[in-house]
Design a protein around this nucleic acid. Structure first.
Length: 442
RNA sequence: GCGGCUGUAGCUCAGCUGGUAGAGCCCUCGGUUGUGGUCCGAGUGGUCGUGGGUUCGAGCCCCAUCAGUCGCCCCA
């Protein structure tokens, strides 16, 4: 007999997977997020992991990131020329979905979507090739009221505060402001300017100044842009600071008015969670108005954990309607992994959902023990029946290792009472399976 | 796609100027009769990422390759 070749098991980098105790927390997070989304009346949809490549490519140059899908043995007779690919976000599939089901949906269409997406990039800390995003978007016909831009921010702050992730801050801006500013300054090539401005938080004013000078802009304009990029206020007071720059254009005025309105509707949020920050631009070029980014305050360089923005007519490539929208997404995997690596996920001792392990005194008692398990289970508890009549010591060790909080001892002999042991405190007491409850004194 | 760093037991690592591998944790069993977490004892486990080269001899040196990781680009 030859030894079978053993391949060292390893998950593909950038495609995360968790142990049961971690996955358990991840599911709690998802439950929480789902609950808040629904509390605001957003409905759930799910779209296939796959779209036709042409659908995904309809917006912008994202080719590098797209994973295509094909059968190992392609059928030469296959006449279909559609190439399939994994979606890299949920906004583009949403656009296709809305266009396709236009007549069956109610507008403004408010939906949430929590799925994995795929991007062919170099994995790094907080950066995966397969990861969960939790999106909410509002799509309207011809227009979407601006108050949704505020509501989405409020929803996300609501969710993030509930996740116990430590201090964070959402930064909001409006693309029209920077675009308008550039117009007013007579800058025609906006791309390098936006990139330089967007980076100021990371590379500092000096770094941005350096990048701008490489774009061959006059020194005075550079200083105006630097001053602009440093405007950051907790309310609408950013307006006067922009006006003080002494630049004006119709687009600029429009953007200022919009952002001021959005900020004005967020005053009910506790101070510090939301700021107007004019350095926020974001790369995705389909954003046309409001843009959001959210950073963990203890590590701003980690990157945004929740971002999005407003777009004008996303589904225009798929339907002859004008369908603007606004959306925002939590980078669940990124955020979750950060908390995992930093030991901030909470209780990781429980490796299963089991509340109670019913001990099996001996194999002959199996039916009686199973009956007890059923009684407890019917009362809403998660109950596991030990799988064999091994020594009690073994059964206890099993409970400890899986982090099961209670062990139930059915009577070892007729006439004796049931007993339940709290594994954390070590106390053990008699109990009735029909009435026992998890509580302080159990 | 471009740069820097790393690659020894399941995990974290040690291995001095080259002489054919170690620790801790984990895991398994035991410390007798119906109960864990501590302690004690014993044990399993590595062709030192892979392929070449130098050498009497390489985990340690050289080359290549693969993988991981960090930074850039970009982004959740």
């Amino acid at each position: 007999m030859t030894d079978p070749k053993i391949y060292k098991p390893r998950a593909v980098t950038g495609f995360p997977e968790w142990l049961p105790e971690v996955r358990r927390i991840e599911q709690q997070w998802m439950d929480h997020i789902r609950k808040v989304f629904e509390s605001y009346g957003f409905c759930s949809i799910e779209t296939p992991s796959i779209e036709e490549l042409d659908v995904l490519r309809a917006k912008g140059e994202v080719d590098k990131e797209i994973y295509v899908l094909e059968r190992l043995h392609k059928d030469d007779n296959d006449k279909s020329d559609a190439r399939l690919a994994l979606h890299f976000d949920q906004t583009v599939p949403l656009a296709r979905y809305v266009a396709q089901h236009f007549n069956e949906l109610d507008f403004p269409f408010k939906r949430y979507q929590m799925q994995r997406v795929w991007r062919g990039e170099r994995p790094q800390a907080g950066r995966f090739r397969e990861f969960y995003q939790c999106d909410i978007d509002v799509i309207g016909v011809d227009n979407v009221p601006l108050h949704f831009d505020s509501e989405l921010a409020a929803i996300m702050v609501d969710i993030l505060r509930g996740l116990d992730i430590g201090p964070f801050q959402m930064q909001i801006s409006n693309r029209k402001i920077l675009i308008g500013l550039c117009e007013g300054l007579g800058i025609s090539n906006i791309a390098p300017v936006t990139r330089a401005i967007d980076k100021i938080e990371k590379i500092g004013a000096e770094g941005t100044r350096q990048l701008l000078s490489e774009a061959h802009l006059p020194a005075q304009i550079i200083e105006t842009l630097i001053s602009f990029a440093q405007i950051k206020t907790e309310n609408e007071s950013f307006v006067e600071k922009v006006l003080a720059l002494g630049v004006s254009s119709p687009t600029l005025a429009e953007g200022i008015a919009e952002l001021a309105s959005v900020m004005a509707r967020l005053t009910h949020i506790e101070r510090g969670y939301v700021v107007a920050d004019l350095s926020i631009v974001r790369g995705l070029d389909y954003y046309t108005g409001t843009v959001y980014e959210t950073k963990l305050l203890e590590n701003r360089d980690f990157g945004s954990i929740c971002s999005g923005g407003r777009y004008d007519d996303l589904a225009g490539s798929y339907i002859n309607k004008h369908l603007p929208g606004v959306g925002i997404s939590i980078g669940l995997s990124r955020l979750f992994d950060y908390m995992r690596i930093n030991g901030k996920l909470g209780d990781l001792t429980r490796k299963s959902p089991t509340d109670i392990l019913v001990c099996l005194p001996s194999d002959e008692n199996r039916n009686a023990a199973a009956e007890v398990a059923k009684i407890l289970r019917d009362r809403g508890l998660n109950v596991e029946l030990y799988h064999s009549g091994q020594k009690i010591k073994k059964q206890m060790e099993y409970a400890v290792r899986k982090g099961i909080p209670f062990v139930w001892f059915p009577p070892f002999d007729v006439g004796q009472p049931h007993e339940v042991k709290n594994m954390k405190t070590g106390t053990q007491s008699t109990a009735d399976p029909k009435t026992w409850m998890i509580g302080k004194n159990s």
